[in-house]
Design a protein around this nucleic acid. Structure first.
Length: 753
DNA sequence: CACCGTTAAGTTTTT
DNA sequence: CTTAACGGTG
């Protein structure tokens, strides 16, 4: 029997109300996941529901993994067939097994946003419209908007969201859809709408799933869009055992299509719903909860909840007024340093900012103070050029119709097939309503209908070579050869590796390293997946791009986390810094005069940020901030005004702090020691001093072979190799821990020991 | 076709 | 200030 003793009365009710529609409004830190896990455990163990009959949908893979692990920990039975998955992964899996209904084949490719954008661009190009006249992004937003509403071509919408065929973008939508169809591909939004379409056109398929899933559960319900809501409604249409869990106050993705009406109107759709509110917070101090509540209660578009906690009063919130953004960053570094000395491990601290651009300044100061940190989010591994190139090869192996992949790699490395030739082939493909691959494969064959296409013999022969390679790879894949072997074959036999190697610059090194990491990822996938197929790998990385495999060894005390407020949702830290709490920054300038709806979302964001903190919350802002090249004086955020005065202390940092640093860190006049505060060593090229320094040392290497040097991040090491001089000087250093790294001297923070 | 200089714009990104 | 993306040139 499942033990419910550790649950509070509402949580208990949330577990026990298994039948009929239930909406759980779970405030921040209210033990939501615990409740969900117990609910599922209860269904499995006490109500004898088979794992096969349960479906739990989440938004992120991380949430799905966490829930699955916790359930596996709780129950004794095998939870292998338990479907705890993301909306997109669920749809992808379903579509692969039912693909034939929609004229897709099961090996369809999933296009990410970047690929969708590439298609939008090519549609414009095809019509001879410059991207200056029409921004491809606008077309995409339009298409995305339709898909978020659950629209697919020809769908009859019940309550709005219908496409208006007279809209100037509607044509693009239709063309985009047929382009994807020709490529045997779906985009993220299309994964959802395709399932809706499947269910509407083939009720017998829907019935199968309705019969199978006796209990359906949706996490982060506030983030669902209309399409996802439609899907849920269909799935649970028969038994109506639907349980949604969300918090309207944490809805921060409306710009991605999340429709807060899904929460606000749930009762209209399911009049017999049981609404439960988890209002007790187990995370934060009374002070933090009260402050956050005061802020969020200004919002009008909410169902209303009142958070409370049994936790202690705690410290006052610290509001810190800084002179400028630089001082703000210095304050963060000093304070995290102080906290650390006082016994708080770095991993318990986090800095939240509204936009990524704010990270840099903070990173700089943390580095200066040698505080361990990590930036969560940021540039994605799989979006790097070399990675996308290699993945395109692999995708083409799986799905021959993937024209986007073909056009990406047909001339990488150079095969003499430039834009013009590619253009010819593309036109031919469109005219014949076939795929690029089809044309390319047949072009060399004199008997084929495409042999008339005028291309030089040289191009034709390199195309044939390309076709042969891909076909060989396909053969390997069909014979269940390990993905890593296929990958290595492409890398080398496509000429890509040699092509990269031919370049000797600094960036190439990083690229080659990234390709190694990709191999690493594939190998790791092979070890962990039940059936390690190439298509499985590709799906994992498009639908779960965060599956970190490059998580290196972390320092024992952890690292201070730096992330956007969006990235912070669902996390908690004992000490949290909300930075840049200024008008036009947080709230963002984009939302400041875009009306109350946008402002309410900013307020929810601020609320999310505040409620991450368990023990102490810092809110900082700068009087003046460098924004778009000039100093702006925005004034403190309106959200600060919304916090009752008795809950915070206001500290105004005195003037510029820099003088302090120069005194304590300038290294006693030793010119050789690396001084991070010394402007002359920063990598600003517009700084005359730097130019001068480089010129002076032009004729001899600054760090000759054998020299003992100190790198500000990696510590002491020995120069193993040195090539070039002046601005082009490159050194290879072996560090104390045995690691070997290469640096461009002009970029690297290295000094002689 | 690759490189460079000019130009314009500048949130957030679970999948 | 930065960065991406376009268009012109060698």
């Amino acid at each position: 029997m499942t033990n419910l003793d550790s649950l509070n009365p509402v949580q208990k009710q949330a577990v026990l109300s298994t039948d009929g529609p239930v909406m759980i409004l779970a405030g921040a830190g209210s033990g939501k996941t615990k409740t969900l896990v117990t609910r599922i455990t209860y269904l499995l163990e006490d109500k004898n529901v088979s794992p096969h009959q349960l479906l739990a949908l989440t938004f992120s893979n991380k949430a799905a993994r966490e829930m699955r692990e916790r359930i596996a920990h709780e129950v004794t039975m095998d939870v292998g067939s338990l479907q705890i998955t993301t909306f997109h992964a669920f749809c992808a899996k379903l579509l692969r097994s039912e693909a034939n209904f929609l004229g897709l084949s099961r090996n369809f490719t999933i296009y990410d946003d970047g690929e969708s954008k590439a298609i939008a661009k090519s549609l414009l190009e095809r019509r001879g419209i410059s991207t200056k006249e029409i921004n491809p992004y606008d077309i995409l937003s339009y298409i995305d908007g339709l898909k978020n509403n659950g629209y697919y071509p020809g769908r009859v919408m019940v309550d709005g969201g219908e496409a208006d065929p007279s809209d100037e973008f509607f044509g693009y939508f239709e063309e985009y859809e047929s382009e994807l169809h020709r490529a045997n591909a779906l985009d993220f939004g299309g994964l959802i709408t395709a399932v809706i379409q499947l269910f509407e056109k083939f009720p017998e398929v829907l019935q199968r799933y309705q019969n199978r899933f006796v209990y359906v559960l949706v996490d982060e319900y506030q983030d669902t869009n209309r399409a996802q809501f439609d899907l849920i409604r269909m799935l649970c249409g028969k038994r109506r055992n639907i349980c949604v869990v969300g918090d309207e106050d944490q809805s921060i993705y409306s710009w991605r299509g999340a429709d807060i009406r899904n929460i606000l109107d749930f009762e209209k759709i399911f009049p017999d719903v049981t609404v439960l509110k988890l209002e007790q917070n187990y995370r934060s101090s009374k002070t933090i909860i009260e402050a956050a509540s005061c802020v969020i209660e200004r919002n009008t578009m909410r169902k209303g909840k009142h958070m409370w906690t049994d936790n202690p009063e705690g410290d006052a919130i610290e509001i810190v007024e800084c002179f400028n953004d630089k001082d703000e960053a210095e304050f963060i570094a000093q304070e995290t340093g102080k906290l650390y000395k006082a016994g708080t491990p770095y991993k318990e601290m986090a800095v939240f900012y509204r936009s990524n651009a704010q990270a840099r300044q903070i990173e700089d100061s943390l580095r200066k103070y040698k505080i361990q940190y990590r930036v969560v989010g940021g540039v994605k591994f799989y979006e790097r050029k070399e990675i996308k190139d290699m993945l395109s090869y692999l995708r083409l192996v799986i799905n021959a119709k993937d024209s986007l992949a073909v056009s990406r790699i047909i001339n990488v490395p150079a095969r003499g097939v430039g834009a013009t030739s590619l253009r010819k082939l593309e036109v031919e493909a469109v005219n014949n309503n076939t795929s690029l691959w089809d044309i390319i494969e047949k072009i060399g064959d004199h008997t084929s209908e495409f042999s008339h296409i005028k291309l030089s013999a040289k191009i034709k022969s390199s195309l044939t070579e390309f076709v042969t390679l891909i076909n060989e790879l396909r053969h390997l894949d069909q014979n269940k050869v390990k993905p890593s072997i296929i990958y290595e074959k492409v890398l080398h036999e496509s000429g890509y590796y040699a092509f990269l190697k031919a370049n000797k610059d600094y960036e190439t090194l990083a690229r080659l390293e990234n390709l190694d990491e990709l191999l690493n990822a594939i190998t790791q996938f092979e070890e962990s997946a039940e059936v390690p197929t190439l298509s499985g790998f590709l799906e994992t990385i498009t639908l779960d791009s965060n599956s970190d495999f490059d998580e290196g060894a972390k320092p024992a005390d952890g690292e201070v986390s730096l992330m956007t407020v969006h990235g912070a949702k669902g996390l908690e830290f004992t000490h949290a810094f909300v930075v840049g709490a200024e008008e036009n920054v947080f709230p963002s300038y984009r939302s400041v005069d875009s009306g109350e709806i946008a402002m309410e979302e900013e307020r929810r964001l601020f609320y999310v940020a505040m409620t991450r903190a368990m023990i102490k919350l810092y809110i900082t802002f700068a009087q003046g901030r460098m924004l778009f090249g000039q100093v702006k004086f925005n004034g403190p955020s309106r959200f600060i005004d919304e916090i009752p005065e008795k809950l915070f202390t206001w500290k105004k940092l005195k003037g510029r702090q820099e003088d302090h640093f120069n005194q304590s860190y300038s290294g006693g006049g030793n010119q050789k020691s690396f001084d991070p505060y010394d402007q002359s060593q920063d990598s600003h090229y517009d700084n005359e001093e730097v130019v001068y320094q480089i010129k002076e040392s032009y004729y001899q290497p600054k760090f000759p072979k054998g020299a003992i040097v100190v790198h500000s991040l990696y510590g002491q090491g020995k120069v193993e190799d040195s090539e070039g001089s002046g601005a082009d000087e490159k050194v290879s250093i072996k560090f104390a821990d045995g690691a070997r790294k290469k640096f461009m001297v002009k970029f690297a923070p290295i000094v002689m020991a």
